[in-house]
Every structure is written in structure tokens, then in C-alpha cells.
Design a protein around this nucleic acid. Structure first.
Length: 216
DNA sequence: CACATGATCGCCT
DNA sequence: GGCGATCATGTGG
């Protein structure tokens, strides 16, 4: 059995290298991240999630997200207004990044939404790389962070500033939206059943069981 | 495909 | 101390 390594210090996969500026990609506005969180979760499917490492850019396109609705959402880290050093970035203004470490080995990345003080966020669950990369390379929140070299040191950075992690708008592509309950939050009671997971029905890079792969 | 299990450790109670 | 916004692997259908 291969030894499993923690992903706190992973480096981006070279197959995800690309040049954001050569594609003429545009970033989202601050105002965009103040929209309703579920709307943002749907709208960023197709967007490019990018990370700079050693002066090189790496990126992939989001195909699956989940919305976490703050103090009233039993599945959210900010449930009942919980405010600890780890969760603090969730309380920042929309457009910041919240990264946390779970299960002793994986990092998960979120895009924070809403005005400062309202702790809602969108978990980035899966993305698709170029044809030359394995389909499942970024299929799952932990794998997505590992493949792009995202870790807890990136938590709290502003995606709109001149930062090492950014999100760029997609320019129209065919996408069939799927919706389901969220994955891995069965402890959250009634909140576990809410339809807050969004994904591209046409993508093989989506994570999770096939039985949840249902159209909207 | 579905389901079960072990790995591994920071966070919060 | 208990457990998690996960994953790889192994079993069985």
C-alpha cells in the first residue's frame, strides 16, 4: 500500500500551466461577489480558477461547486456565527479566498461571498484541466487544491487584488446545469438535504456518486 | 457501480 | 478526546 502524503505543501501540476493574459481573460468585479451566494455558485461554473507559483500560472475551469449559507446553515463552518481564526476569512468581503485543512491531509478552497461580516462562501469541488491532463485530476475539493498547489497559506487572500490566486470569467460555453444535495455533510441534519450543489452535467470531471448526477 | 475502511492531524469542546 | 465541506483502495454485485 502506497504511503499517503498530506497535501498541505503540494506544488501545482505542470500539466495545468497556462497564460491567463494571452487568453484575454477578465476577472469578476467586486460587486459580482455580493450577489446571492447560490447564484454565484452557479455562475462561476466554467470560470478559470488560477494559481501562480514560481512566477508561472496554473489553472483549470470549475465544473462543480457548493453553496454554504453562513450562520443559519448547519453544514457551514460559520454556523451560529462561529468565528475562530480558521473561519475568519469567511467573514471578509466577497471575493476573498477561504481555504481549510481537513481529515489530516486535504485542503479545500472556497470563494467568499456577501459583504464583510456575512460569512457565506462557495466551495470549489471540481474542475477540468486541458485535454492533455487526466480527466479526474481535479475531481474533488482536495484534489483540486492539490493539483493547483492551493493550501492554507492562501486562506484570506483577495482574489481581486494582484494576488497569487485568481478567478477569471468564462466566455460562453455550452453547459447543462445539474443540482443535488451537498456531499459529505450528512451530519448537518435538515441542511444536508438542501439542493446547494451545482455542476456541469456534461463534464466527466465532476466528483461524487453518479446517482447524484441529476439535471436541474 | 455501490459500499466499507484506513490514513492522518488540526480544530474545537 | 472526537471527528471532519476527503481520497485511494479493496471487496462484492
Amino acid at each position: 500500500m502506497a504511503i499517503q502524503k498530506t497535501r498541505k505543501d503540494s506544488v501545482p501540476d505542470p500539466r495545468l500551466r497556462f497564460e491567463p493574459q494571452s487568453l484575454g481573460l477578465k476577472q469578476f468585479s467586486r460587486k459580482f461577489f455580493l450577489n446571492e451566494t447560490t447564484h454565484i455558485a452557479r455562475a462561476i461554473i466554467g470560470a478559470w480558477f488560477c494559481c501562480r507559483h514560481d512566477n508561472q500560472w496554473y489553472g483549470a475551469r470549475i465544473v462543480e461547486t457548493e453553496a454554504y449559507l453562513g450562520s443559519t446553515d448547519a453544514a457551514a463552518h460559520s454556523f451560529r456565527g462561529r468565528r475562530t481564526p480558521r473561519v475568519e476569512p469567511m467573514y471578509m468581503e466577497g471575493g476573498h479566498l477561504y481555504v481549510f485543512f481537513v481529515y489530516g491531509m486535504h485542503c479545500c478552497a472556497n470563494v467568499v461571498t456577501q459583504p464583510a461580516g456575512v460569512a457565506e462562501a462557495v466551495l470549489l469541488r471540481a474542475a477540468k484541466g486541458p485535454e492533455t491532463a487526466p480527466t479526474k485530476l481535479l475531481s474533488g475539493p482536495g484534489k483540486l487544491c492539490a493539483a493547483l498547489g492551493i493550501n492554507v497559506a492562501h486562506s484570506g487572500i483577495d482574489l481581486l487584488a494582484d494576488a497569487d490566486v485568481r478567478l477569471f470569467q468564462s466566455f460562453g460555453e455550452d453547459m447543462k446545469l445539474g443540482v443535488s444535495k451537498r456531499i459529505g455533510v450528512d451530519y448537518a441534519g435538515d441542511a444536508a438535504a438542501l439542493p446547494l450543489r451545482f455542476f456541469d452535467m456534461n463534464s466527466d470531471a465532476v466528483s461524487g456518486p453518479l446517482k447524484l448526477r441529476t439535471p436541474k
